[in-house]
Nucleic acid binder design. Sequence first.
RNA 1: GCCAGUGUAGCUCAGUGGUAGAGCGCUCGCCUUGUAAGCGAGGGGUCACGGGUUCGAGCCCCGUCACUGGCUCCA
Length: 647
Amino acid sequence: MSSTIRITLPDGSVREVPSGTTSRQIAESIGAGLARAALAARVDGAVRDLGRPLEADASLAILTERDPDALEVLRHSSAHILATAVRELFPGAGIGFGPPIEDGFYYDFDVPRPFTPEDLELIESRMTEVARADYPFVREVVDRSQANHRFADDPLKLERIAELGDAETITVYTDGPFTDLCRGPHIPRTGRLKHFKLLHAAGAYWRGDEKRQMLQRIYGTAWFKKEDLDAYLHRLEEARKRDHRVLGRQLDLFSTSDVLGPGLVLWHPRGAVIRWLLSRAVEDDNVASGYDLVYTPNVTREELFYISGHLPLYASNQYPAMGAGAGEAEDVRYMVKPMNCPMHALIYQSRQRSYRDLPIRLSEVANVYRNEKSGTLHGLLRVRGLCMDDAHIFCTMDQIEDEIFLCLDQVDRLVRATFGFELDFEVSTRPEERLGSDEVWDQAEATLRRALERKGIAFRNDVGGGAFYGPKIDIKFRDAIGRIWQGPTIQLDFNLPERFELEYTGTDNRPHRPVMIHRAIYGTLERFTGNLIEHFAGAFPVWLAPEQVRVIPISDAQAEAARGLAQRLKAAGLRVRVDDSSETLNYRIREGEVQKVPYMAIVGQREADSGSLALRVRGTGKKQEAMSVDAFLGRITEEVRTRALAP
RNA sequence: GCCAGUGUAGCUCAGUGGUAGAGCGCUCGCCUUGUAAGCGAGGGGUCACGGGUUCGAGCCCCGUCACUGGCUCCA
């Protein structure tokens, strides 16, 4: 019974202890300080409660605040403490799930009415009391009937219990008055939770299924140190300041209008410049990369979307069909396009193709319209009228790898190198329901991976995450404050060539079916611009800045010289404005800073006399340099040419 | 689409049933400026829209629309 087991500690030392010794006891034997700091244990790589007995040889690490896994445990326990408080304040509340999430935790409750902000304050202070009470988290193993009995009044928990396999150990955790079905692990006592805040409440479907009942979710955040909590709240504040919807108005980039309709964007001159430069950048790169440019109509007969298979499946995402013009048959109806691929397929189909023609790369920066659910719309990031930098590559199976490689090159140039985004790659593989043989999928997935490996790119697998018509590479990018956005997508498609019966003549003089690759580098110009606004906090690099230089004469006496300078800069292709308004110099400089203009060229009498300018660089405070116009032109045109990130 | 919240001047927001307010912006005047807000005056609102309750509604009730935060979906 009391056999001896060997526990290996992180420093490599081995302790021989009786079987059944807990991690906590080992922590205590190492030192009182460690025992006090201990929050959980990592046993053979798995995070466990400190109180769990060790029953076999194992490697053991005692987790303290310094370990990221411990933070996750703290947040999970915070969710329980939240539920403890809610159950006390709202005794009948049903309980759903309460997991840790990035930066915090949430818990879903089934309550008769939604939580109000006042409720959250009340719940938060009750949580503080629960934490102060310093209840231990007690783990119990129960059998199925005990579990059913204990959660007899919690239908949501019963549903979860029923799903647990017979082989699974069912455990419950109790902290003070509250017991929850939970796999754990948890912190030793509620008192370890000190720095947390409830953030907001929102509706959430049970099991994330929109057909099921809606629960009320409370989100919170928890940290070990007050500084960390404060830093996190500060980060939220920073993110709010970068909100592209706010900056879009302040910088006069774009607007929306109730009269115009939701999800539709008005690009103002200053925003349109950015969009135009982006679309030019990708078109230039497309042409240089061997793509052909094409243009296709905004409306088509709806039949096209039946051929492509989008109808009737995606009808809810498309705007309804409209009748034809006068004099045409009434049953011929037209639709605004939600995507370009069917039309690019028609271009492919418009003549006979030989293997010698492949790959055919068709690209188009085009507006499409999608009738997105109203609740999903969000600034520029989720709209109904959007402009894709779309392209479709038609090629043979053998050519896929090189084509993917080419796409990855473009992503690297246009997204990573140009904007300094960190990229994260994910290969989505075959789903349950799919088109095409396993051999084709094997080959396609392997090809995607090979292209990534050839480029030396690390990637993750999203097993089963591919579309029914082919695997894809999803590329996410991380912005200046660490947020992650969905970026470029490279999608293989075996379906559309089938539906459009696309063919090429092979070396064997027989017809073959090409593969189609859908790819977008920026995705949509709306979303990408929104991302850029937030990434740069509105302070765009010179090449993208709507206004690159603001010329400010110190007084009216230099207005003429200022206009002359502006003319010279404009002649060099720069976007320049003169601010000769009757405001004070300080006021006008402040305006320039607030508008995030990268350069201000101040012209006083000294500069006017010598034909120079005093340069103020955005964000650098009082530091300024006097320089000749030529020197400035050299500097700024070089920055534009190289798409420099600074200033 | 679902749940909740919000909707007052161009913007940010006060306004708890009794004559619609502030700051900034805007217009005009004064000031003529050396690196992040000079001074003064003025204009500006069917209080999202529609209905109801009330002697009386920005405020209370119902509906619609839009936005916000989530859920679901997604570029």
